[in-house]
């Protein structure tokens, strides 16, 4: 990569860094793990950047590389998430902003998502990011129909976790 490319890469990443943060938020449970994953995704993005042709949007490409990195890291370390971890650190929900029932419901929902496997999490992540099925299928490299089927399964699974 030449200096110019390097500059444009860092500038783009600086602008879109929230995407990486959000991936980290879903896949990690504490500050250190968040930072580690952020750095790992940054490095993977940088390595992959020479192959980025601009036929996809930079942000779409970031979703793809970010999720891939999170999924492979997750597989390597086989980290399993416990609900307590996530309650304590991750989603700094301020109690006064919610009434008890809504807060409770959100906590349960987030902890249910944390119990999904890495691929299912990626689907949920893209859904939360307001991506449509075409975008989800592009990012995850599956067909649109497949994305819909998988998404429905995830929803069912979430319901089973929430109402055992």
């Amino acid at each position: 990569m030449n200096k110019e490319q390097e500059h444009s890469f860092i500038a783009l990443l600086e602008r879109h860094q929230n995407i990486v943060h959000k991936v980290c938020r879903l896949y990690t449970n504490d500050y250190d793990a968040h930072n580690d994953l952020f750095q790992e995704i940054t490095i993977q993005l940088w390595k992959a950047y020479p192959k980025f042709r601009g036929d996809a949007k930079f942000s779409t490409w970031m979703y793809r590389i970010g999720l891939n990195t999170a999924i492979t890291l997750y597989r390597k370390s086989k980290r399993r998430v416990t609900t307590q971890d996530f309650d304590a650190v991750q989603f700094r929900i301020k109690a006064e902003d919610y009434d008890d029932t809504e807060e409770q419901q959100l906590k349960l929902l987030y902890s249910a998502v944390k119990q999904l496997n890495d691929i299912e999490k990626a689907l949920v992540f893209l859904y939360l990011e307001d991506k449509n099925y075409r975008e989800i299928s592009e990012t995850m490299g599956i067909s649109e129909v497949n994305a819909r089927v998988k998404m429905n399964r995830v929803k069912t699974k979430l319901r089973t976790i929430l109402n055992p």
Binding site: Y110, Y127, K155
Partner: peptide, 19 residues
């Protein structure tokens, strides 16, 4: 459905504040 409740919270401004 559940995911939409989550989506609403996920996209709230205070949940988008990262360092």
């Amino acid at each position: 459905d559940e995911l939409d409740i989550l989506k609403k919270d996920w996209n709230k401004e205070e949940n988008q504040n990262f360092p």
